[in-house]
Simulated scan of single mutants.
Amino acid sequence: MTVSGIVVVIPAKNVEGVIETQLRALNAQSMLDFDVIVSDNGSSDRTRAVVEAWPAAFSSLTCIDSGDRPGVAHARNRGIECSDAPLILVCDSDDVVGPGWVQAHAAALAKADAATGPLLLTERGRRGFGEWGADGVPIAAGYLPYTPGCNMSFRRQVFKSLDGFDAGLWRGQEDVDFGWRLVKHGFSISHAPDAVVEYEQRVGLLAKVRQQFKYGRAFADLCSRYRADPIPVQGIKWRGRWWLSFLRRGLRHPVKSWRVTYPALAFQAGRILGSVQHRVRTPMW
């Protein structure tokens, strides 16, 4: 069990080359009274060895095995279950938390049930690719707010009340589902402006397209879970205007827009395929 009242849970799989950067950022926190649990979701590289050899400046560092079922949702659940800390913080293994990240989340949880903060989009550690969630708690699909999985915190009571993350959403969108259920259960989400995370993007067009196609399919899977309380879907005219504008941008600047346009198209393709498979109407996000 953990020593302090705060635990940071990091799902990980085959990240031996990047997880040290995140651990280094946690070593540099403005407050160090917290524990870290890395949940190894079936790594075939030296991820576990790297973690176990890391000289933690914070209270404790543990690496646990969650490889019996794939997906970050299961990895997070298993990591959280291995701790009894009342305050739970979650980040990813390939990102970088800011120096005041832990302290900002702890302060936010003193007034709310859950919290999230800004994401600075980076590629290969370089900034300048935009910000996300800087002005407040993000809202997914124009429906309800949520806490992105790379920058979230919540009280243990929340985790227990929701029975954790939905491990069936192994392709993604499990953080959106968690946030939506959190709000539906009457819990509050706070925006912590100082809880900043450098959010590393996929490098290369193919990697971006594959990721977004998977997320599109996952979004349809998510929507299928809300049939009893359907997510609002845009009308035919709105969709037609969106596609027209989308195609114009792509054709006008086919090279310059690949960073956004083609991955967005992959998401829509995955969403449409998933919608057909699950026989569900889905918004265009």
Results as ranks from 00 to 15, higher is better:
residue 282 T to G: 07
residue 140 A to C: 06
residue 99 P to Q: 09
residue 243 W to K: 08
residue 224 S to A: 15
residue 133 G to R: 03
residue 35 D to Y: 07
residue 183 V to K: 11
residue 133 G to C: 03
residue 153 S to L: 04
residue 260 V to S: 07
residue 130 G to Q: 03
residue 129 F to G: 01
residue 139 I to T: 15
residue 149 G to D: 08
residue 152 M to K: 13
residue 102 V to Y: 04
residue 108 A to P: 06
residue 221 D to M: 09
residue 274 G to I: 02
residue 126 R to F: 05
residue 24 R to D: 14
residue 113 D to Y: 10
residue 23 L to R: 09
residue 101 W to G: 03
residue 10 I to Q: 02
residue 185 H to L: 06
residue 273 L to W: 06
residue 50 V to S: 08
residue 45 D to H: 05
residue 202 R to F: 11
residue 29 Q to N: 07
residue 70 P to M: 11
residue 115 A to E: 04
residue 1 M to F: 03
residue 135 D to V: 01
residue 46 R to E: 11
residue 178 F to K: 06
residue 177 D to L: 06
residue 169 L to P: 04
residue 150 C to A: 13
residue 228 A to L: 13
residue 123 E to C: 07
residue 263 P to N: 01
residue 24 R to C: 08
residue 114 A to R: 08
residue 40 D to M: 05
residue 45 D to L: 04
residue 146 Y to V: 04
residue 16 E to P: 01
residue 241 R to Q: 12
residue 251 L to R: 04
residue 153 S to H: 08
residue 132 W to V: 03
residue 248 R to C: 03
residue 75 A to V: 09
residue 69 R to A: 12
residue 55 P to L: 07
residue 170 W to R: 11
residue 240 G to A: 11
residue 193 P to T: 03
residue 130 G to D: 05
residue 240 G to Q: 07
residue 228 A to T: 14
residue 253 H to D: 10
residue 75 A to Y: 06
residue 10 I to S: 03
residue 272 I to Q: 09
residue 34 F to N: 06
residue 229 D to L: 09
residue 78 R to F: 04
residue 226 Y to S: 02
residue 89 L to T: 06
residue 111 K to R: 14
residue 231 I to W: 03
residue 245 S to V: 02
residue 70 P to I: 10
residue 31 M to R: 13
residue 28 A to S: 15
residue 82 C to S: 15
residue 195 A to C: 05
residue 203 V to L: 12
residue 202 R to D: 12
residue 124 R to Q: 13
residue 18 V to D: 10
residue 109 L to C: 10
residue 269 A to C: 12
residue 251 L to V: 04
residue 277 Q to D: 08
residue 203 V to F: 09
residue 268 Q to T: 11
residue 114 A to G: 12
residue 144 L to W: 02
residue 212 Q to W: 09
residue 241 R to I: 02
residue 200 E to P: 00
residue 14 N to Y: 01
residue 93 S to L: 01
residue 243 W to E: 09
residue 257 S to F: 00
residue 132 W to S: 10
residue 3 V to W: 00
residue 141 A to F: 13
residue 173 Q to F: 05
residue 83 S to R: 07
residue 199 Y to C: 14
residue 231 I to R: 03
residue 246 F to R: 14
residue 217 R to I: 05
residue 50 V to A: 10
residue 31 M to V: 10
residue 99 P to M: 08
residue 56 A to N: 12
residue 274 G to Q: 03
residue 91 C to T: 15
residue 244 L to D: 01
residue 127 R to S: 12
residue 272 I to R: 12
residue 163 D to C: 13
residue 12 A to I: 05
residue 276 V to W: 14
residue 142 G to N: 13
residue 89 L to K: 01
residue 18 V to G: 00
residue 170 W to K: 08
residue 282 T to F: 07
residue 236 I to F: 13
residue 28 A to N: 14
residue 87 L to N: 06
residue 149 G to A: 10
